[in-house]
Each structure stands twice: as C-alpha cells, then as structure tokens.
Amino acid sequence: MSTTQQLVDEIRERIKKIRIEKGYSQDYMAEMLNISQNAYHKLERGHTRINLRKFIDIAKILEIETAELINGPEHVYMFSKYYQKSLLRKIE
C-alpha cells in the first residue's frame, strides 16, 4: 500500500472515530452534507473519493480543524504555533 493510500485510510478512520465519539450517525452526517446515507457510507468506507469541499464540510460538522483530520490531534497545535510565530514576525 502506498503512503498516500495509508494517509487517506487514516483520515477516513479519524472521521469515523470522531463521528462515533460525537454520537453522530451516518444518516446525520449524510443529511448535513446533503448526500444520501449510502453515499456517505461509501465516503467513510473508501469506496468513493472525498472531494475537498466535502472534506472541509465534514471537518466543520465534526467541529474540528482540517489539520486534525489530516495529521491527528497531536499535530494540530504544532501548525498553530508555526503560524502564530510567522504572524508575529510580520507584525513586528
């Protein structure tokens, strides 16, 4: 399996895990995304690609940063700190 495919699989697993932790059903996610439950099921299981717009919408529904979906929760703040430092340098 390629590293790209592994990353995509990890993202799908994170989406499923967070969805379940929040108590959201696949039906709820599908309704919020304005797609069928079957279409959502295919997204989560890897039978269909997630386009960027849907990916962003999923993050919004789950109330998390897209960076957390991509990299996991342990790396989210690393990016935030980088951008804060970059902004401080530009402001000074």
Rank of each mutant, 00 (worst) to 15 (best):
I35P: 06
Y77R: 02
A67K: 01
K54I: 09
L87W: 14
E65Q: 07
S80P: 01
A39F: 05
K22R: 15
R14M: 05
E21M: 07
Y24S: 04
N38W: 03
L43A: 07
Y40S: 05
K17N: 12
M32V: 02
L87C: 14
S86A: 15
S25C: 08
D57I: 01
N51T: 06
I20Y: 03
I35A: 07
K22L: 02
D27W: 04
N71F: 11
Y24F: 13
Q26T: 07
E44I: 06
R45G: 13
Q37N: 10
I70F: 07
M32A: 08
Y83G: 07
E44S: 08
I18Y: 03
I64S: 00
S86P: 00
E21C: 09
Y77I: 03
A39S: 09
I35E: 03
D27N: 11
N38C: 05
L69E: 02
A67E: 04
Y28Q: 07
Q37C: 09
R53A: 15
E63M: 01
E31T: 11
E68D: 10
M78H: 12
E44V: 05
R14F: 08
I58K: 00
I56E: 03
L62N: 00
L88Q: 14
A30N: 08
N51R: 10
I20F: 04
Y77H: 10
R49T: 09
K42L: 11
M29R: 02
R19Q: 10
I91S: 15
S36Q: 11
L43N: 05
K85Y: 14
K54L: 09
L52R: 12
N38I: 05
S80T: 11
E31I: 11
R45S: 15
N51E: 10
K16Y: 04
H41E: 10
I64C: 13
N34I: 12
E68H: 04
P73M: 09
G23T: 04
E31F: 12
L87R: 15
I70H: 05
R14W: 05
I56D: 02
Y83E: 13
S25D: 06
E68V: 03
Y77W: 02
G23V: 04
L52F: 14
E92M: 10
I50E: 08
K90C: 08
I50M: 15
N51Q: 09
L62W: 01
L43K: 03
K60E: 01
T66D: 04
D27R: 08
S36K: 09
K90I: 13
E92D: 12
K60N: 05
I18C: 04
K90D: 14
K90T: 11
Q37I: 06
R45A: 15
R89L: 12
F79P: 00
S86C: 12
P73H: 11
P73T: 10
S86W: 09
Y28R: 06
H41A: 11
A67R: 00
H47K: 14
P73S: 15
K85D: 15
M32D: 01
